[in-house]
Amino acid sequence: MAGSASRNPWLMWVGAIMVLVPAALSLLAPWLAPYDPNQVDLTRRLLPPSGEHWFGTDEVGRDLFSRVLDGGRRSIGAGLGVVLLSGFTGVVLGGLSGWRGGKFDLVLMRLMDVVLAFPALVLAMALAAALGPGLLSSVLAVAFVRVPVYVRLVRAQVLSLREREFVAAALTAGASTGHVLRRHLIPNSLPAVLVQATLDAGSAMLLTATLSFLGLGVRAPAAEWGAMVNSGRVYLLDQWWYSTLPGAAILLTAAGFNLLGDGLRDRLDPRQALGLFEAGRSRRAVTLPARKGPSSHQDR
C-alpha cells in the first residue's frame, strides 16, 4: 500500500534510534539538562546558540536546550499516552464488537463512522477546547479521535480469527467467551495493534503538539515542543532558533516512530496496519480491486 517506506531493514533501526535517543534524553533531563528548564534570567534574554546555551535562550532567559530536553517528556509522553489510551479502548471495544456482532456491533461501528467523519485535528480541537486547555485534555481529545482506528482493526482481526480451528477447539472444550477473547482472540490480534500503535505514536505526537501550538496544550511555564514553537513565533525573524529547534525535535521523533512502525509492519504483519492518512477511511475504493498476479512483490 501507499506509504510503505522501509524496503531497507536497517531503516527500522534508524527509526528505533530516532525514537530512543530523544526519549532517553528527555527521561534523563533532570540529570542531563545544564540548567533548570524554568529558571528565569532576564539579563540573558533571547541569546543565540553558543557554547554556554546550545540552543540559545528564550524571551525570559530560560535555557532552550534544557527546555527542549524537558519538553520531550511531555511531547513524547503525550504521544505514548494517546496510543495507550486509544489502543486499550480500541482493543476492548473492537474485541467485543467482533465477537458479539449483532446490534452492539452495528451501533458501535456507526458511532465510529461518525467520529471518523471529522478531520482528526478539527474534532480534537473542539474536544480539547471543551475540556479546557491543558496537556491532559489534549491527550484525551486526540485519544478519542484515534479510537475508531483500533476498534476497526481489532474487530477485523477477531472476525477472521474466530473462524480458525483453535478457537472452535477452545469453545468445544467448554471455554467461556471471556476466556476465548482474553486468551486467544485478543492476544493474537496484538501484533497488528502494536504495529498500528507505533505508526500512530508519531501522528499522535504531531496532533498533540499541534494542539499545543494552537494554544490548547500545556499551560505555561511547562515546556512542550509544540508550545515552544508557538511562543517562539513572535521572535521568528530575528531569533529563528527559538521556534525551529523544538520543531526539529518533533520532526525527528515523529519520523522515527514512522520508520519504526513501517519496519515492524513489514516484519510482523504485512497487510493489516494502515498508514497515517489511510487510517480509518472508507478503504473500500482503494483496496477492493483484487490484488492478483505478481504485483505485490514488486510493491513491497
Partner: peptide
C-alpha cells in the same frame, strides 16, 4: 518525501519556510 510528509509538523514547516523565503 512521503515519510517526511507524514512526520512533518505542518506548523513547523510553515514557520521554517517563512524564515527562509520571507525572512
Amino acid at each position: 518525501v512521503s515519510v517526511a510528509g507524514v512526520s512533518m509538523p505542518l506548523f513547523w514547516l510553515a514557520i521554517v519556510s517563512l524564515v527562509v523565503f520571507y525572512g
